[in-house]
């Protein structure tokens, strides 16, 4: 039920942003549509509603995760642009294996998305039972599991554990 209420609020918010400037006709239609969406898919949206109540998690998300993510994202782009523009194409690609301690769906999703959008790495597959991610790396610096984990995963895992676990 809590999940449905959260989804209703989010859907109404997205609807009113899509129909800016809001007036009452849009809002009435939006309330009906948001109710329908929340009724149909509500129980899939949030698995653990109690997480949404901690204000500290939002603070960590905005103050720690977003700046790190944006900076890494920018570095990733400069890095890829450099490799692509270089006449000799300096790449040595490969798929490495890294370990993670995160367990929840949201945490793993955010970790995989962050890995994909950061320098030189692209998440290929997740093995949830063993806590293993397979990561395609455009310039392999370390082949064994421990040192690859240290380079790729750690900087995000510390932050994401506080936000989503």
């Amino acid at each position: 039920m809590k999940s449905r209420i959260v989804l209703f609020i989010v859907a109404l918010l997205v609807w009113s942003l899509l129909n800016w400037v809001p007036d009452w006709q849009h809002l009435v239609v939006g309330i009906f549509i948001a109710l329908f969406v929340a009724y149909m898919t509500g129980d899939l949206f949030v698995k653990r509603p109690h997480v949404l109540k901690h204000p500290l998690r939002y603070w960590y998300f905005l103050a720690y995760y977003l700046p790190v993510f944006l900076w890494e994202c920018f570095k990733a782009n400069v890095d890829v642009a450099y490799r692509v523009a270089h006449p000799r194409l300096p790449i040595s690609p490969g798929i490495v294996k890294v370990k993670t301690n995160l367990k929840t769906d949201t945490g793993l999703t955010f970790l995989a998305n962050s890995i994909t959008l950061t320098p030189g790495t692209l998440c290929v597959d997740i093995d949830r039972d063993n806590g293993v991610l397979y990561v395609h790396w455009i310039d392999v610096k370390a082949k064994d599991v421990e040192s690859a984990t240290k380079i790729i995963v750690e900087r995000f895992e510390r932050i994401l554990r506080r936000i989503f676990e």
């Binding site: 994202c73 920018f74 990733a76 782009n77 890829v80 642009a81 692509v84 194409l89 790449i91 690609p93 798929i95 994909t116 959008l117 030189g120 692209l122 290929v124 395609h136 455009i138």
Partner: peptide, 20 residues
């Protein structure tokens, strides 16, 4: 265009095109 295989091309396609 320049990178050799599917995975490397995906790297360029996701990162640069997303942020661009």
């Amino acid at each position: 265009v320049r990178l050799p295989d599917v995975y490397n091309r995906l790297q360029a396609a996701t990162k640069c095109v997303t942020i661009g």
